[in-house]
Amino acid sequence: MAYSDKVLDHYNNPRNVGSLDKSSADVGTGMVGAPECGDVMKLQIKVNPATGIIDEAKFKTFGCGSAIASSSLATEWLKGKTVDEALTIKNTDIVNELALPPVKIHCSVLAEDAIKAAITDYKTKKGVAVEAGALAVH
């Protein structure tokens, strides 16, 4: 099975590898894994508090080329979107963009899960932060 040129490009030059400050209130972290292949994927977003737009996205993936390419592509797509827009990214979009074969579709699913997990983490943090603020006022 040959990887598509786009997968190879992301694999050889992954975009946005790295990490953001997990403890920052503006950062959401998603950590997902696939027991079957042993892959583990960390994806982080940093939301600009003034605009609500994701201005930074980073990932680190241990796994196959398709998993790395899927998460690399996901971080590219995340930047410039609002959190709600980011939730509309579907694994099928990643499959189409990277021309993933059927046996690698689960890699794109993992990337979608990672996006959702990162956003959930961000929203949870914001929810907690708002409550804490309200408590402080009282």
Partner: peptide, 21 residues
């Protein structure tokens, strides 16, 4: 096994897996 996703893996294990990698 393997038909499902991360839901069956506890998050703290994922952190360990990540650190080890």
């Amino acid at each position: 096994i393997g038909e499902q996703r991360s839901k069956d893996v506890p998050p703290e294990l994922l952190d360990e897996v990540f650190e080890l990698n």
